[in-house]
Design a protein around this nucleic acid. Structure first.
Length: 575
DNA sequence: GCCGTTTTCGGCCCGACTGTTTTCAGTCG
């Protein structure tokens, strides 16, 4: 894929144009960059098939941008970019990653001090050279030094599974402050994005001061960036930023909508407002000075001619058009909808708790059935089960089931395994043993670095085994740590449809695999999925919420998620 | 430079906070 390379150049061109105070073009290049970044098809293929005309069909790509894409496809260069870059030959991405440093600052740093890199900037700031530049001062210099320190120590985004519990705890504490009518987490956490850049919290209160005072004084706070009457920004000791806004209650809906984002979704809503002769901001929807909507999110969407859009869908990926046309999913899978969990590890292999302890914890979490899926023998480091150990575990599960469902009304423990897919696509457990299990999960755990064609062949062969029921964590990615293995997911989804193999949405926060874009493809192709916790300990079932969230972000309806069904219906589907 | 439920020309999201200012630019979300 060449798209990401061009997208990066366009986003740099946006910055370079902004440095020169060019009007409107920066936004055009930025939008084109985002559009290319989210494109499935390689622009080389698009250009090959349809030339410039086809390129112009890409959203936010017009004549000028299409020609530049053509130039890059042909020559691997964009002369405009080279020319601009020659004027300011600096590491734009690196410098811009420092809080408070934008295009204008980058330009003057280059012109006055010949600063190209983060290292240059750090040296100059430490030497006290920045304060001599007009427009900058001692305070800015100090802020830049702190910003560089932060970039060096943290860098990446946090997992949803790390940020969500903390954000909800802060929400609970803010809600208890006298005068606070509502406290609610907004931002990317409310949209349940897989990674989180900061925590946004919205509070309704007529007295902001005590709320702001409490917020900057929380034990988690390491630094206060800004503190005002309506907005306060802090950095937490764990490296996350947290952003608090206080609004009056008549603005609650508009503010919640605005602070939930995404930015692209908000911009699109504001453009709709403008076309209707209205103005939308975080205080409401206005005709002139009169507020016409915005007390609730529901009245806001209605006033814009849209049906309500769930937060997980607000990414400007077609949800606004679908809302207007009444084509949003009728019944998204909900946070209380799961009745079973088909991937659970125990102390028979690398889990921490016994079969009974896991079952009891699942029952307490509101589930009616789980499938025990310990690792198999070729995963030696986990003490993976061979045929004999599996047979023994099956007898043990039978024994537990006889008494357990009496103590925990009608709870079922299913017999399963997480069977390893070998390099050639065969499974490491004999078919006659697999045939005795209630539900067989298959998964790749080794030989990640195969070619795309070989990996795709390997996984498809495993799916074609008649005993294979579910493909666990289909792409093998670990968020922020390991990329997915190179596999043709379009082909895998097509095969799933043919063989009836269920694709898993693994809910553990570092996996979330399938991710939303593949879930969306399954939804379009009507390929059934399950959401599993992949729990390795009794406290692991809370992770299901992140899997459900990912499914919602992929527009998955309840009926397509098979473990929303009873154990009887689920087993009937498998058969 | 892009786009079209006003439009092929004339628009392009909007407000808060900080720092360096003497009235506002830059940055952020």
């Amino acid at each position: 894929m060449i798209n990401a390379e061009i997208a990066k150049i366009f986003s740099e061109m946006a910055l370079l144009l902004e440095m020169d105070d060019v009007a409107f073009k920066p936004r055009a290049f930025e939008k084109a960059s985002l559009s290319l970044g989210s494109l499935d098809e390689d622009v080389r293929d698009i250009y090959q098939k349809g030339g410039l005309k086809a390129l112009e069909k890409i959203p936010d790509v017009g004549g000028g941008i299409a020609e530049r894409i053509e130039e890059y496809v042909k020559t691997h260069r964009i002369r405009d970019y080279d020319r601009m870059k020659k004027k300011v030959p600096v590491d734009l991405g690196g410098l811009k990653s420092v809080e408070g440093v934008g295009p204008k600052t980058i330009r003057i740093l280059w012109q006055k001090l010949k600063i190209r890199t983060l290292q240059d900037l750090e040296k100059a700031a430490a030497a006290g050279k920045l304060r001599s530049i007009p427009g900058l001062g001692a305070k800015t210099e100090e802020n830049i030094l702190e910003g560089i320190e932060f970039v060096k120590e943290s860098g990446g985004r946090f997992l949803l599974g790390e940020a969500w519990p903390l954000a909800n705890d802060i929400e609970r504490r803010l809600a208890k402050i006298p005068g606070v009518a509502v406290a609610v987490v907004a931002g990317s956490i409310r949209r349940m994005k897989e990674t989180i850049g900061d925590i946004d919290v919205l509070v309704v209160s007529r007295q902001p001061e005590p709320v702001m005072e409490y917020f900057v004084g929380m034990p988690e706070v390491a630094h206060v960036y800004a503190k005002g009457d309506t907005k306060t920004l802090v950095r937490l000791k764990n490296g996350l930023d947290a952003d608090l806004r206080v609004v009056p209650k008549e603005s609650f809906g508009a503010a919640l909508n605005y602070f939930t984002g995404s930015k692209d979704h908000n911009v699109a809503l504001r453009e709709i407002a403008i076309k209707k002769g209205l103005k939308l901001n975080e205080y409401g929807l206005f005709r002139g000075k009169r507020q016409v909507a915005g007390r609730t999110e529901e009245d806001l969407y209605k006033a814009l001619g849209l049906s309500y859009i769930e937060p997980e869908l607000r990414e400007n990926r077609g949800e606004i058009e679908a809302s207007r046309a009444g084509k949003l999913p009728k019944r998204l899978v909900g946070y209380g909808d799961l009745r079973g969990d088909l991937q659970v590890q125990t102390d028979w292999t690398d889990g921490e708790n016994s079969i009974e302890e896991m079952a009891a914890a699942a029952a307490k979490a509101g589930l009616a059935y789980i499938c025990i899926t310990d690792h198999t023998k070729s995963l030696a480091m986990t003490g993976g089960a061979d045929e004999k150990k599996l047979e023994k575990q099956m007898r043990e599960i039978d024994r537990i089931n006889r008494t357990f469902s009496i103590q925990h009304s009608a709870f079922s423990i299913l017999k399963g395994a997480e069977v390893n897919i070998l390099a050639d696509g065969s499974l490491d457990i004999a078919d006659r043993t697999l045939a005795k299990l209630d539900c067989v999960g298959v998964a790749v755990h080794s030989h990640f670095k195969m070619s795309r064609a070989a990996m795709t062949r390997r996984i498809i062969r495993a799916m074609e085994n008649p005993h294979a029921d579910i493909l666990f964590h289909p792409t093998g990615r670990l968020i922020n740590r390991r990329p997915a293995y190179d596999v043709d997911m379009d082909a895998v989804i097509k095969v799933a449809k043919r063989t009836g193999t269920i694709l898993e949405i693994d809910a553990s926060p570092e996996r979330l695999d399938l991710k939303d874009e593949y879930i969306r493809k399954c939804v379009v192709g009507r390929v059934p999925m399950v959401i599993d916790s992949d729990a390795h300990a009794a406290n692991g079932f809370g992770a299901l919420r992140y899997g459900i969230a990912q499914a919602r972000r992929g527009w998955a309806e309840r009926e397509l998620i098979l473990n929303t069904r009873s154990v009887v219906d689920f087993l009937k589907m498998l058969a």
